[in-house]
Simulated assay, not measured.
Amino acid sequence: MSKELSAALSAAEKIRDQIFPEASTCMLAGSVVRGDATAYSDLDLVVVFERVENAQRQSFTFGGWPVEAFIHDPQTLEYFFREVDRPSGVPSLPNMVSEGIEIPRETKFGSLMKDLASRILEEGPLQWGQQERENSRYAISDMVEDIREPRNTAELRIVVANLYSAIADHFLRSQNRWSAKGKSIPRRLMSVDPEFHKRFAEAFEAAFTSDDTADVIRLCEHVLEPDGGFLFQGYTRDAPKEWRMPDA
């Protein structure tokens, strides 16, 4: 066990004892558990009680550690798994529970929560329908047109940054795989398809460092090709019928 993980576990146990003594389980998760923490990484804790009035996220500092605590009971935890993370396609909370280390030791209650998280991860995200695929294709197509002949460097870099997430999400979700967001994107792509991750990283490196978007555009073509390529002509998207002001 590394010194960083040992220190994090010690701090997490004190947090449980002093702040959440009535919790049924407390799990340390995140970068310190994965082994890729930095000097500025926080402690991610999933704290599960028998019953809470509502789920809650708390941010505080303890013993020099910045802490993010995700407070739940079994019902709110399952709700977030099924009604928040599965539709979003990003399994933030199931991953934390599945990979988390129980503090101070494993419990039957904690094992049940981990089993639930594992089942959700095995089920995968909600599958994209045709409309979701077309919405993603259209959004990416629109951004690609913006970088073919950008008005200025500032706009180019903003659009490239947005494409970074959009392309990764389409690549993963169109295969009915769990997606990722933010700094987790490279790690997720590497775990799913190392060859694609390499191509993705090189394309965006060129775009970010030298404003050369040729490989990013080719990458977009490659990712969208199985769904029919770029999309503009014939695209429609209906607003909900209830989106209207009532008659006077």
Results as ranks from 00 to 15, higher is better:
12 A>L: 07
12 A>Y: 04
13 E>K: 14
14 K>E: 13
14 K>N: 10
14 K>P: 00
15 I>H: 05
17 D>L: 14
17 D>A: 15
17 D>R: 15
18 Q>V: 08
18 Q>T: 14
19 I>D: 06
19 I>Q: 13
19 I>G: 07
20 F>D: 09
21 P>L: 12
22 E>D: 15
23 A>Y: 08
25 T>M: 15
25 T>R: 09
26 C>A: 13
28 L>P: 02
29 A>T: 05
30 G>L: 01
30 G>A: 06
31 S>M: 05
31 S>H: 08
31 S>E: 06
32 V>N: 03
34 R>Q: 07
36 D>F: 07
36 D>S: 01
36 D>I: 08
36 D>Y: 08
37 A>V: 02
38 T>W: 01
38 T>H: 09
39 A>P: 00
39 A>K: 14
41 S>E: 01
41 S>M: 01
42 D>C: 01
43 L>G: 01
44 D>Y: 03
45 L>E: 03
45 L>C: 05
46 V>T: 11
47 V>F: 05
48 V>E: 03
49 F>I: 02
49 F>A: 06
49 F>V: 03
49 F>P: 05
50 E>I: 04
51 R>S: 14
51 R>M: 07
52 V>N: 08
53 E>P: 00
53 E>F: 10
53 E>K: 14
55 A>M: 12
56 Q>G: 05
57 R>T: 15
57 R>K: 13
58 Q>K: 12
58 Q>D: 14
59 S>C: 12
59 S>F: 14
59 S>D: 15
59 S>H: 13
60 F>G: 13
60 F>C: 12
60 F>K: 10
60 F>H: 11
60 F>Y: 13
61 T>W: 07
61 T>L: 10
62 F>D: 11
63 G>S: 14
64 G>H: 08
64 G>D: 11
65 W>Q: 08
65 W>P: 04
66 P>A: 13
67 V>F: 11
67 V>I: 12
68 E>Q: 13
69 A>V: 06
69 A>G: 09
70 F>M: 15
72 H>D: 11
72 H>N: 13
73 D>S: 08
73 D>T: 09
75 Q>T: 12
77 L>E: 01
78 E>V: 10
79 Y>S: 10
81 F>T: 03
83 E>W: 01
83 E>H: 10
84 V>Y: 07
84 V>G: 04
86 R>Q: 15
86 R>T: 05
86 R>I: 01
87 P>E: 03
88 S>T: 07
88 S>F: 00
89 G>R: 02
90 V>S: 06
90 V>T: 11
92 S>F: 03
93 L>H: 00
94 P>I: 02
94 P>Y: 04
95 N>W: 05
96 M>L: 09
96 M>Y: 01
96 M>N: 00
97 V>R: 03
97 V>M: 00
98 S>Q: 09
98 S>N: 09
103 I>C: 06
103 I>W: 00
103 I>P: 02
104 P>Y: 04
104 P>A: 06
105 R>M: 10
105 R>S: 15
105 R>Y: 12
106 E>K: 14
106 E>P: 08
108 K>D: 15
108 K>G: 11
110 G>N: 10
111 S>N: 12
112 L>M: 12
114 K>M: 02
114 K>V: 04
115 D>C: 01
